[in-house]
Protein backbone atom coordinates (compact mmCIF):
# COMPACT_ATOMS: atom_id res chain seq x y z
CA UNK A 1 0.00 0.00 0.00
CA UNK A 2 1.33 3.43 -0.82
CA UNK A 3 0.53 6.37 1.41
CA UNK A 4 0.69 9.95 0.26
CA UNK A 5 3.19 12.02 2.21
CA UNK A 6 1.89 15.01 4.13
CA UNK A 7 2.20 18.38 2.45
CA UNK A 8 2.45 21.68 4.32
CA UNK A 9 2.21 25.26 3.11
CA UNK A 10 5.34 27.33 3.62
CA UNK A 11 4.60 30.14 6.12
CA UNK A 12 7.78 32.06 5.32
CA UNK A 13 8.50 34.70 2.69
CA UNK A 14 10.12 31.94 0.60
CA UNK A 15 13.07 34.16 0.02
CA UNK A 16 16.47 32.63 -0.46
CA UNK A 17 18.77 35.48 0.37
CA UNK A 18 21.52 35.91 -2.17
CA UNK A 19 24.91 35.16 -0.68
CA UNK A 20 26.97 38.25 -1.20
CA UNK A 21 30.55 38.33 -0.08
CA UNK A 22 31.67 41.33 1.93
CA UNK A 23 33.70 44.06 0.37
CA UNK A 24 37.29 43.36 1.47
CA UNK A 25 38.49 45.52 4.36
CA UNK A 26 40.69 48.33 3.10
CA UNK A 27 44.37 47.89 3.90
CA UNK A 28 44.65 51.61 4.57
CA UNK A 29 42.24 54.50 5.01
CA UNK A 30 44.52 56.85 3.08
CA UNK A 31 42.69 58.49 0.21
CA UNK A 32 39.32 56.99 1.17
CA UNK A 33 36.20 58.91 2.14
CA UNK A 34 34.89 57.89 5.55
CA UNK A 35 31.18 58.35 6.24
CA UNK A 36 30.12 58.90 9.84
CA UNK A 37 26.45 58.03 10.34
CA UNK A 38 24.57 59.43 13.32
CA UNK A 39 21.37 57.40 13.76
CA UNK A 40 19.89 60.07 16.09
CA UNK A 41 20.54 58.12 19.28
CA UNK A 42 21.37 60.23 22.32
CA UNK A 43 24.98 61.43 22.30
CA UNK A 44 25.83 59.65 19.04
CA UNK A 45 26.75 63.07 17.62
CA UNK A 46 29.22 63.69 20.47
CA UNK A 47 30.93 60.36 19.84
CA UNK A 48 31.11 60.96 16.10
CA UNK A 49 32.43 64.52 16.49
CA UNK A 50 35.24 63.14 18.63
CA UNK A 51 35.92 60.42 16.07
CA UNK A 52 35.82 62.92 13.19
CA UNK A 53 38.47 65.01 14.99
CA UNK A 54 40.75 62.00 15.37
CA UNK A 55 40.34 60.97 11.74
CA UNK A 56 40.89 64.50 10.45
CA UNK A 57 44.06 64.81 12.53
CA UNK A 58 45.33 61.93 10.44
CA UNK A 59 44.51 63.88 7.30
CA UNK A 60 41.55 61.71 6.34
CA UNK A 61 38.46 62.80 4.43
CA UNK A 62 35.33 62.59 6.61
CA UNK A 63 31.68 63.14 5.73
CA UNK A 64 28.83 63.33 8.24
CA UNK A 65 25.30 61.92 7.83
CA UNK A 66 22.26 61.67 10.06
CA UNK A 67 19.21 59.40 10.05
CA UNK A 68 16.00 61.27 10.98
CA UNK A 69 15.18 58.64 13.63
CA UNK A 70 16.73 55.42 14.85
CA UNK A 71 13.29 53.80 15.14
CA UNK A 72 13.06 53.27 11.40
CA UNK A 73 15.36 52.06 8.66
CA UNK A 74 17.40 54.73 6.89
CA UNK A 75 15.60 56.38 3.99
CA UNK A 76 16.64 54.89 0.65
CA UNK A 77 17.91 58.26 -0.52
CA UNK A 78 20.29 58.46 2.45
CA UNK A 79 21.51 54.89 1.90
CA UNK A 80 22.22 55.66 -1.74
CA UNK A 81 23.94 58.95 -0.95
CA UNK A 82 26.28 57.26 1.52
CA UNK A 83 26.96 54.41 -0.89
CA UNK A 84 27.79 56.91 -3.64
CA UNK A 85 29.94 59.28 -1.61
CA UNK A 86 31.85 57.01 0.79
CA UNK A 87 34.23 54.08 0.76
CA UNK A 88 33.85 53.22 4.44
CA UNK A 89 31.09 53.93 6.98
CA UNK A 90 31.19 54.14 10.75
CA UNK A 91 27.83 54.11 12.49
CA UNK A 92 27.23 55.20 16.09
CA UNK A 93 24.71 52.61 17.24
CA UNK A 94 24.39 52.71 21.00
CA UNK A 95 23.29 55.35 23.49
Amino acid sequence: MTTQNLTLLDPTSERTPANRSRVPRPVTLDGLTIGLLDISKARGNIFLTHLAGLLEQRGLNVKRYRKPTYTRVAPTDLQQTIATECDVVIEALAD
Binding site: T3, N5, L6, T7, L8, L9, D10, E14
Partner: peptide, 16 residues
Amino acid sequence: FRQVELAEIEDAIEAC
Protein backbone atom coordinates in the same frame (compact mmCIF):
# COMPACT_ATOMS: atom_id res chain seq x y z
CA PHE B 1 2.42 29.42 -2.22
CA ARG B 2 5.12 26.82 -1.95
CA GLN B 3 4.09 23.43 -0.68
CA VAL B 4 6.59 21.42 1.30
CA GLU B 5 6.27 17.67 1.09
CA LEU B 6 7.34 15.87 4.23
CA ALA B 7 9.17 12.57 4.22
CA GLU B 8 7.14 9.51 5.10
CA ILE B 9 8.55 9.16 8.60
CA GLU B 10 8.55 12.88 9.48
CA ASP B 11 6.27 14.01 12.27
CA ALA B 12 4.37 17.08 11.12
CA ILE B 13 4.79 19.11 14.32
CA GLU B 14 8.47 18.25 14.59
CA ALA B 15 8.88 19.16 10.92
CA CYS B 16 7.55 22.65 11.68
